[in-house]
Structures are given as C-alpha cells and as structure tokens.
Amino acid sequence: MNTKGQALKKVLPNNMLNKRKGSAPGLSSDKKLAVRLLTPTFILLALLTLFPIGYAVYISLSSFDTFGNHTGFVGLENFIKTLTNGTFWNSIYVTLLFTALAVGSQIFLGFNLALIMSRDSNAMKYLRWLLIIPMMLSPLVVAIVFRLMLNTDMGIINYMLQGLGLQKINFLGEPVLAFLSLVVVDIWQWTPMVFLIILAGMQSLPKDPFEAANIDGASKLQTIRYVMIPMLKPVIVVALVIRTMDALRTFDQVFVLTQGGPGRATETVSFLMYRQAMKFSEFGFASAGLLIVLVITIVISSLLIKLMNSSQAAN
C-alpha cells in the first residue's frame, strides 16, 4: 500500500476502500487510476477542512492569555459559555431572519422577472446580461457603493428624499433600517442569480401541458399556479438551497456597511465570530462558537438537501 492510499484511507470511511478484493483482474488498473486521480483532491480538501476543524476542537477546549498564548485546558467551559450567551443567540436570530427575508424576496422577485423575460427576443438577450451584472461583482464592492448611496449627508438616496420634501434618514444608524438596508443590498446583488436559474428552468419546460391548459380554458394565473409552478419546483428548490447556504454566511456587506451595529442589530453569526476571533484571549470561546455554527450548518444543509432530493424525485 503506498502512502497516497493510506492518506486517502484517512479521509474516506472504511467501507469505501476495501472493495478491491472481489473485482475482476482486468478492471483493477482502471480502479487504481480512478483512485489516483481522486487522491490529490481529497488530500487537499482534508488538509483545508478536517485539519482546521480538528484544530478548532483543540482550541475550543483550551484557554489563552491576552497575547494568544495557550495557558491550559478548560474542558467544555467555552461551549457552555457560548450556549448561554445572549449575544450568540442574537446573532443566530439576526442571521436566520436576514436569510428568510432576503432569500424569500429573491425567489419572489426572481420568479416574476423570469416570467416577464421568458420570451425569446434579441433585445431580451442583452437585457438579461445587464440584469445579471450584480451577481458577478464582489460583495465588498457592492457594499461600498451602497454605503456611498445611503450616506446621511451626501448620499443620493437622502438627496432624492429631500427633493420629495421628506426628512433625511440615517439608514445605517437605526437598528431596523440598518437591518433592512442589508436585506435590500442582498436582494440587489442576488435576485439576478435566482432569476437566471428560474429562467433557465422555464425555458426548458415542455410546451404540451401549457397548450392543454389553454384548450381547457384555464386563465393565465391558473396556468402559472397549477401547471408552471409545480413543474418548476425542482429548479426553484435548487435556487433556494444555493442562496440559503450563501446568505447564512453573510459577512462582507456587514463588514462594510454596519460593522454589526447599531448595537447588535445587524450582527450576523459570521461577523460575531470574526469579532471574537480578533480578541486573542477569546480564541477558545470563538472556536466553540464556530463548532456550534458548524453543527447548525450541517443540520440546515442536510434538511435542504433532503428537500432538493425529494422535489427532484417527485418529478
């Protein structure tokens, strides 16, 4: 057994590798090649995921002084501290509410936009490229642009509000408005992606059911509700899953726009973890939080994947 094989064994559950006994001799060289081609990927992924997570477990059980020096083991203290910490639960609440509002709006808007854009024409092709620009940009740059536009004194949005005879609004200084601003920025950047995925789904639907509905005298809304949406469900679920997983890790926009404030109104999990990790004495505390976040993410991801699989199986 060479070293590559041993490394792979560490990464993979046992039952995946010990099958080579019973196979036909002619296939064994193919099998070797298959494993060899996979090995570099698994080694690199293990080094970059399993190793850091293992290290995080070690840190979470340790205590540190203010210079970041390891000072001893504290058992599960850091986990208990995190789980009984109101700040931690606040960040979970902020993240979940943010994700629900942002992704929900994106699915609604993206679906309607796709419905409007679904007819083929040359003009639509160029429009489509214009509409999807936001999702290609760095979230950091997007946040900078919105920070400029939302500025209380020289921002264009407040200037236009004044033009309408309204008061200036300190968008990023009020808890609810700051939170909603983040949601709007996320909608701006990611609705195009949902739109594009749903549009691709719409364009690949068969035509017969629509003609049948038309003959049966169904109205347009009825056709959309009872024919189109059920057929599109798998595609909508794919968009939902991808967007939810990304929204749960929102960091860049918070970093630029609000730094988690005012108060803790916009402090997402990722931002809270960043803030704690910046204080060296709280490495252990931060790592415990990260591992809890990891568990929550695994639970949410597997629920989403179940949803995705069942929606695809239904079709």
Partner: peptide
C-alpha cells in the same frame, strides 16, 4: 467542503 461556512475554517486556518 463547499457547504462549510468559511468563517468556521478561517479562524483555525489563521493559527
């Protein structure tokens, strides 16, 4: 590996 939140990895990776 794509689903892991980057923040979970980046702190231990920094160390």
């Amino acid at each position: 590996a794509r689903m892991l939140p980057p923040i979970v990895i980046v702190v231990p990776l920094y160390l």
